[in-house]
Design a protein around this nucleic acid. Structure first.
Lengths: 225, 225
DNA sequence: TCAAAAGTGTTTAGGATACACCCATGA
DNA sequence: TCATGGGTGTATCCTAAACACTTTTGA
């Protein structure tokens, strides 16, 4: 391997987080409002630089914790954006991570400090640099992943209803699904445990609550939507 | 975004290439033999550092060209490996790219210079650092991608036979496929053009040659294996 | 003439889709 | 009593999978 480049290399490595949440039956992304120059008063992803002795994955978790106060969050690396001029001010290569968080759990004060706000994925504001591409590639990856892995439960509380779950998938795929076919498929998955409780907050009749049983899932691991 | 880390950041950014070739009806990876310390005489992926003003994608193409002499090669970013101690000698974060090349076209002298050799993907030698993980994640990605995109034709000459094509898919999936079902599916794809020539080199009867018609593919873009 | 690879159809099973009405309840 | 959202079953289509024999020809 040629050492020439390394000795004079001046590239900064960053991570950017695409933070997804399911709020009011819509899939949303948490964006921060830049309070400093350059690009002051525009919106961007939450990001940060990677520490010299910090694992890349850990940097993403740290950045997320700084903003949300959350630890143990479900995160996946998406891809690395490395165009030489993607940031017009300095050479920064950024690896993106998508995070699935629960609106109820994050730290509201921290989020206000960063002037962060939720945006539905089909109503994104103008974003700095290539952050719009980052969000879009994270959405596409999420759409692929949720078909074969039961990761959507990271976006729902411990107990949730089937109408909620369907709305969540619809929000991710950005398309409506047939209620009966959807439930028929779920009925074949025994790791979705029906509880003897109803959620009465969204309808008069009330909807039964369910729970995702990870142990049962791990036994079979067959899942597709 | 916090600038603290950036000012003292000392991380080197590299690219590593997983170079796939289809040789003797097997899917193989091109590896280089390290002629220098550390880790002298072990095998590794072809890699290199990213230039200060070089796009990340361009760095991968440059590294591939240095080894193979090839330009205009089909390459995809796979993922970025960023564990702090993945390279025990220095802090290097590496983004991997997979390349699909044609054995007939590459520059043999260059490859000999690097003491590179082809290895079937199920008979990999011991590799330095996390290069084995890199190869495996590239294979998994390739397996997913070839199901929905007609990228395998980058691994075949302009004209190829259906038995060849099937062997290639079998090599990628590492499993045998039913000849009749395979051909039935291909028959529905009109961008696979049958020629009036036969390849007589692999059988007495000879097998008809086909050509991938990119223009026809772009009209419909429906493809799944 | 025979060995070796190329080529060719049909049947079956399972999953995906389309589709409409009753139920429970609070207001 | 009615408006609102929750819950349920069947028929059809299509794709995936299983499966065996004939053809060609050089050695």
């Amino acid at each position: 391997m040629d050492r020439t480049y390394k000795d004079i290399q001046q590239i900064t490595l960053a991570v950017d987080c695409i933070i997804f949440g399911f709020n009011d039956n819509r899939l949303e992304v948490l964006l921060v409002h830049r309070g400093f120059e350059p690009e002051k008063d525009r919106w961007s992803l939450m990001g940060g630089f990677v520490g010299n002795h910090e694992n890349l994955d850990d940097a993403a978790h740290r950045v997320l914790k700084d903003l949300s106060g959350l630890e143990d969050v479900y995160m996946e690396q998406v891809r690395t954006f490395g165009k030489a001029n993607r940031d017009p001010y300095e050479r920064v290569v950024s690896t993106t991570y998508s995070a699935l968080i629960l609106k109820e759990k994050y730290n509201k004060e921290l989020i206000e400090e960063y002037r962060a706000e939720w945006f539905p994925i089909d109503e994104l504001p103008d974003l700095i640099f290539d952050h719009k591409d980052m969000v879009e590639s994270a959405i596409r990856r999420l759409q692929r992943r949720v078909r074969t892995f039961p990761i959507v439960f990271n976006l729902l509380p411990e107990k949730f209803t089937l109408p909620q779950l369907q709305k969540l998938y619809e929000g991710i795929f950005q398309e409506e699904m047939d209620k009966r076919n959807f439930r028929k498929k779920l009925a074949t998955m025994d790791f979705l445990v029906k509880l003897n409780e109803k959620d009465m907050s969204e309808s008069k009749k009330g909807a039964f609550l369910y729970r995702f049983d990870e142990k049962k899932y791990n036994k079979t691991k067959n899942f597709t939507i």
